[in-house]
Design a protein around this nucleic acid. Structure first.
Lengths: 347, 347
DNA sequence: AAAATAACCGAAAACGTTTTCGTGTTAATA
DNA sequence: TATTAACACGAAAACGTTTTCGGTTATTTT
């Protein structure tokens, strides 16, 4: 059974293609009689207009391209579920491209999609892209009138809609919390500065200390390569963190920029016979499954990924539908929330 | 800057559309001179053929539709990453639809995609679909010549390519392991029988006991609604499991059909002052982040999600490219692996 | 009965490609 | 010189829609 087309219906019922098209759209140009006949036939054989032909005609595809660094990652999946939720309601499809944090793959993914396959992009840039500071592909797609919405890891220099969290503020909030709980030597385990969000969170850490008149001790700052939270590098990650904790034995509070760092820190600390939260209090970032199910459960910053996804999709779709002025872009800042759990319990 | 088309290039260089098309394809029908001129112009203005037009012409879209019940879910994301990996290599795009385990959404998602947007489906059916046993949408798409590959949660009655794991065998393997570790009273925490994989794992549990001449005690079998592992129902889940453990205090081994059940069981057992693994040994299913990072780390069945995704994508693409005989379907069984960690340590 | 107006339907163009076939020009051959 | 072959290019159809514009009939109005 091949797909039914207008042409086939027309031939079968001995009318013109136009007549079929109009009849199915209930145009009153067509007599009630033929209209009913055609509609009956079409519905009996389950006719559905071909999306590709429609896309070509209307010059829009009703699909949005989402480019993310990784998909096996709690935060990004919550964002996708948010995007999918509003996209679906508004009749859009979602096509996913993974960059694997590689510049090459990000570029090629965007290239293959920006030739008519999608109406606009929602993306979080690859670490490598941030490292290389090469944004030509982004500029180019925007210049070619394909709207782009960036979320989470955004590029300030690029002019487009953005949805971010108050990373710096969230970090400040976390560190202030640790201070208020009586921690004196607060460490941060973060990424190297080229990772935009890592840098911002480090900044927030420093700000909190300064505002509370605590001296910054650079020994207490551990900046890690972003590849270290891969499954294959977990051992190495633990060694590094372990060494760090050993050489700064007086640490009594740790702020980590993701869940993996936090849990690994807890594990390493325990091996040094430190008790969590009695001896060391720990706060992480990203309220994923790990934070909820670890023992002790992890105090963490919730980024509200689903909301980020929903806002991003709305931003993009509004722009696609011309509901927003052409040359002004928005940056939506989602407020984070500190979710307190066992890892910062007062004992 | 509007998108460049063959027509515009043709007009600009004062040649015909056909000439431009041929020149860009390096056809030797076109003189070297004009060829170079056209190619230079096209590459200077960054011409890319319009995918939609190509899809319409070639009657294939080079995209595959993936329908899954949830995306905030470790196993499914690993499958997607596998699919994306091979799809990408072979020039295909991946479009994602989420059913949220709802029959309605599964049907509507497939409907909107099967009108030309995709060349084939890879899907894992929604729980509700399995409950209702309504497979009309699946039969219909297959009848309309849109190939379907099912993975993990498959429908035996439907004739199509499938990729599954040896669920029953894996469960048997796990329970046998517990027996060999000396467990006498082994419980299973599973889903209701309408969830295909839950049912199979329960079957494997029973088989292991029988083969080892252990009496089956139906009190030790806890079948839960599949909605209980949602974030919002975690409390309820814990209460149910806790009650179950209390009323079967002699349990010394638990096999759980997913990570969440396993970790919740561990938590509940601890509150009853049971030590893991000394008093109770626990084995879970799905080797996700939770299993690796929990304390104690969880012995678990690895389903090799990435491999499942890769095999599924290969199966689908081979069929799309006619590399496989039309009326015979394959079922690939991926072997699972028992990954031993702390929750089954011998003390 | 002639003219005007509905009512109903079809031809054709357009979206952007690819490809087949035809045609005119030039160069090589008989 | 006449014929043929090679070369370089263009017209047009096709993929499946939608929509504008005309064109027949049939029906109403004068």
């Amino acid at each position: 059974m091949q797909k039914l087309t207008l042409k086939k219906i027309a031939k079968e019922l001995d009318v013109s293609i136009s007549t079929v098209s109009k009849a199915l759209k209930d145009s009153n140009e067509i007599s009630a009689e033929t209209r009913e006949k055609i509609k009956a036939f079409a519905s009996f054989y389950n006719y559905k207009p071909n999306n590709i032909a429609l896309s070509l005609k209307n010059r829009k595809t009703m699909t949005i391209g989402v480019i993310i660094p990784q998909i096996v990652h709690y935060f990004f999946t919550t964002v996708i579920s948010g995007i999918e939720n509003v996209a679906n309601k508004k009749g859009y499809n979602v096509i996913i491209g993974l960059s694997n944090d590689s510049f090459e793959k990000e570029v090629s993914n965007m290239k293959t999609l920006s030739n008519g396959s999608i109406d606009g992009f929602i993306l979080s840039v690859a670490n490598e892209t941030q490292l290389l500071k090469n944004y030509e592909h982004l500029r180019e797609t925007i210049n070619q009138n394909t709207p782009v919405v960036m979320f989470d890891r955004v590029i300030p220099e690029i002019n487009c809609d953005k949805v971010i969290v108050d990373d710096e503020e969230a970090a400040k909030k976390s560190v202030s919390k640790l201070l208020s709980l009586g921690c004196k030597k607060i460490a941060i385990i973060t990424t190297k500065d080229y990772v935009s969000v890592g840098k911002l969170r480090t900044k927030g850490y420093l700000k909190a200390l300064k505002e509370n008149n605590v001296n910054v001790n650079s020994d207490l700052i551990l900046k890690l390569e972003d590849t270290l939270d891969n499954d294959s590098n977990l051992k190495l990650l633990e060694t590094k963190i372990s060494k760090f904790l050993k050489s700064n034995f007086e640490i009594d509070g740790i702020f980590c920029v993701n869940e993996i760092y936090a849990l690994t820190a807890i594990k390493a600390a325990r091996k040094l016979n430190k008790k969590i939260p009695q001896d060391i209090k720990v706060i992480g970032f990203t309220d994923g499954v790990l934070s909820r199910f670890s023992t002790p459960s992890l105090t963490t910053i919730s980024q509200h990924g689903r909301l980020i996804g929903e806002k991003s999709a709305n931003l993009l779709i509004n722009r696609l539908e011309g509901k927003v002025s052409k040359n002004s872009y928005q940056t939506i800042i989602i407020e984070t929330e500190l979710i307190e759990r066992e890892s910062t319990l007062i004992c």
